[in-house]
Amino acid sequence: MIKIKDLQARVEEKEILRGINLEIGPGEVHAIMGPNGSGKSTLSSVIAGREDYEVTGGAIDFEGEDLLDLDPEERAHKGIFLSFQYPVEIPGVTVSNFIKTAINESRKGRGEEPMEAREMLAKMREKTALLEMDKSYLSRSLNEGFSGGEKKRNEIFQMAMLEPKLAILDETDSGLDIDALRIVANGVNKLRSEDNAVVVITHYQRLLDYIEPDFVHVLYNGKIVKSGDKNLALELEAKGYDWIKAENA
């Protein structure tokens, strides 16, 4: 589905990604772990198309197309979704108007008709129920005054509404209480299928107990320095990163 080859990126003069190689197939779940500041969020942002980062080398191929040529919105239309580590507050735009606009702009981008109002409403009802969200969130300003956990839940609600092919969840577990973690993970699992893929960025095994990864990667200093199966995450949980750092010193 997505093939990342020798991806290098920097911001201003600082090199952050130093040759990332990663291939993700449909139906797969990949976990990316790694110490703070290693470049995990940068990688997600570059995939989603944030213009602050300058790609200095390498390529990203998404379903046979060069992703790096596309605007962020075009990438979204192709089915890429990023759940932000720090969702942005947007006063004056309600959650429901926002999601309606996002869905219909994506449809338009794909040459489809807008969604019927009734279908939209039914879908919102279904997805708020799935994530056990109070419907009053829909009429609130996007993320404004939301608690940390509420913001994360709202990200997954948007994901559920948009049904992306590739969802990147950047520390979606941080800020969630124990029940919320279960609910959100359950929501993500419900959306999994043979056709879509999920990348989970996390620091903790906890989330991976619910969303079981097929592959686990360690990102360190702008590179993927180790890959394995779900046992790698357990090993990291037990041993920390010192041994990884030593291996790559």
Partner: peptide, 26 residues
């Protein structure tokens, strides 16, 4: 706000509309 603009665009809202949405909200 650049971050807000990227947030909206990453959800599929084209740049112009995203700017409009934010400006209108403002």
């Amino acid at each position: 706000d650049k971050n807000a603009l990227f947030y909206l665009r990453s959800r599929g809202i084209p740049k112009r509309e995203a700017e409009g949405l934010m400006t209108y909200a403002f």
